[in-house]
Amino acid sequence: MTSRIFFSAILFVLACGGLAQADRTHVAVAANFTDAANEIARAFAAETGHQAVLSFGATGQLFAQITQGAPFEVFLSADNVRPAMAVAEGYGVEGGVFTYAIGQLVLYSPDAAVVTGPEVLKEGNFQQIALANPEAAPYGKAAVETMQSLGVYEALQPKMVQGQNIAQTFQFIETGNAELGFVALGQVARRDGGSRWVVPQELFTPIRQDAVLLKQGEDNPAATAFIEFLKGDTAAEIIEKYGYATAR
């Protein structure tokens, strides 16, 4: 009798653990979307009771981690390439890719007198300009395309400093390691002061940020609920508040 009670208690604990896990989902999030994602996660928890555990990084790095078995269940990319690759390579759920945000690139400086428009790039009167690694971060790729479109890329190469991701790039600018740099509008949309130039969309390939439900989250109600929440009006309002466009 005692052993049966003990065995039943173990099963109960395991079952409770499974239920608790079902209320939590692990989400890989592109670094440029940090502020918006944190607010979305709070709204998601308030509305559904589920918890989204967020991990931030460069899109390329996050995708590499997914292919190496990282326990992510949802992937919020900064491009529309990696989520499609995730599905093609068997990590993402078929039919589960959608655009959650359309990113906007901005040239930004904490100094109110530095960024006056594209002419600051052509004049080159600064020591260093920051951008994210274009191999791993779509915003870095967009920055390179912008400079190439303006015909200043080669001239500015000696002055470029690269962050591993867009978050580190922003830190370079904020700490004065670079006088100005290319970041996501979402990172500065709610900041006062400084100077900025929102880069026209025709100067770079549109940054369509796609999300995908990963195979590891297919049977987790919290993961599927997060995907649905991300498609809804509450999330869209937050996304737009942080300087992104949406497809709605």
Results as ranks from 00 to 15, higher is better:
Ala155Asp: 14
Gln168Leu: 14
Gln168Thr: 14
Gln171Thr: 12
Val144Ser: 03
Gln157Gly: 09
Glu202Asp: 15
Thr205Leu: 08
Gln168Asn: 03
Thr175Ser: 15
Lys159Pro: 01
Glu202Cys: 05
Phe182Trp: 04
Asn133Thr: 13
Phe182His: 00
Pro138Thr: 03
Trp197Ile: 00
Glu174Phe: 01
Gly181Ala: 08
Val199Ile: 14
Thr175His: 11
Leu185Tyr: 10
Gly163Asp: 01
Ile173Arg: 03
Thr169Gln: 05
Thr146Ile: 12
Pro206Gln: 01
Pro158Gly: 08
Arg196Cys: 07
Val183Pro: 01
Gln171Ser: 06
Ala189Gln: 15
Lys159Asn: 12
Phe170Lys: 05
Gln187Asp: 04
Met160Gly: 04
Val188Thr: 14
Ile173Asp: 02
Gly163Trp: 02
Asn177Gly: 05
Gly193Cys: 13
Ile173Gly: 06
Gly181Lys: 04
Gln164Leu: 10
Gly151Pro: 10
Gln148Pro: 10
Glu202Leu: 01
Met160Arg: 08
Val161Tyr: 10
Val198Arg: 14
Gln171Trp: 00
Gly194Pro: 08
Arg190Asn: 15
Pro134Val: 01
Val198Gly: 10
Asn133Tyr: 01
Asn177Val: 04
Ala189Glu: 15
Leu185Thr: 14
Leu150His: 13
Phe170Met: 12
Pro200Arg: 08
Glu154Tyr: 11
Leu150Ser: 13
Leu150Arg: 12
Ala137Trp: 05
Gly151Phe: 10
Ala137Val: 10
Gly140Arg: 07
Gln168Phe: 08
Trp197Ala: 07
Leu180Arg: 00
Ile173Pro: 04
Ala155Ile: 08
Val188Ala: 14
Gln148Glu: 15
Leu131Trp: 06
Asn165Phe: 00
Pro138Ile: 00
Tyr153Thr: 08
Gln164Val: 12
Val188Lys: 07
Ala142Lys: 02
Ala178Met: 06
Thr169Ser: 05
Thr175Asp: 10
Asn133Met: 04
Lys159Cys: 06
Glu145Ala: 10
Arg196Val: 09
Glu179Asp: 08
Gln157Asn: 13
Arg190Tyr: 00
Gly140Pro: 01
Ala167Asp: 05
Phe204Arg: 09
Glu179Tyr: 09
Arg196Met: 13
Tyr139Met: 09
Phe204Gln: 12
Leu203Gln: 11
Ser195Phe: 11
Ser149Asp: 12
Pro206Lys: 02
Trp197Asp: 03
Gln128Tyr: 13
Ala184Met: 06
Leu156Arg: 04
Gly163Leu: 05
Tyr139Pro: 03
Arg190Val: 09
Glu145Tyr: 03
Gly151Lys: 11
Asn165Gln: 04
Asn177Ile: 05
Ala178Phe: 02
Ile173Ser: 02
Ala184Ile: 02
Arg190Cys: 03
Leu156Met: 11
Leu156Thr: 03
Gln201Lys: 13
Arg191Ser: 13
Glu135Tyr: 13
Phe204Leu: 10
Glu174Asn: 12
Thr175Ala: 11
Ala184His: 00
Phe172His: 05
Tyr139Arg: 08
Ala132Asp: 01
Thr175Ile: 00
Asn133Gln: 08
Arg196Asn: 11
Pro138Glu: 00
Leu150Val: 10
Gln187Trp: 01
Pro134Asp: 05
Thr205Pro: 02
Leu203Asn: 11
Leu185Val: 14
Ile173Gln: 03
Gly193Asp: 12
Gln157Ser: 15
Glu174Gln: 13
Gln201Tyr: 03
Lys141Trp: 01
Ala178Val: 02
Ala143Thr: 08
Val144Cys: 04
Ala130Lys: 03
Leu131Ile: 11
Gly151Tyr: 12
Tyr139Gln: 07
Ile166Val: 15
Gln148Arg: 15
Asn165Val: 02
Ala142Val: 05
Val144His: 01
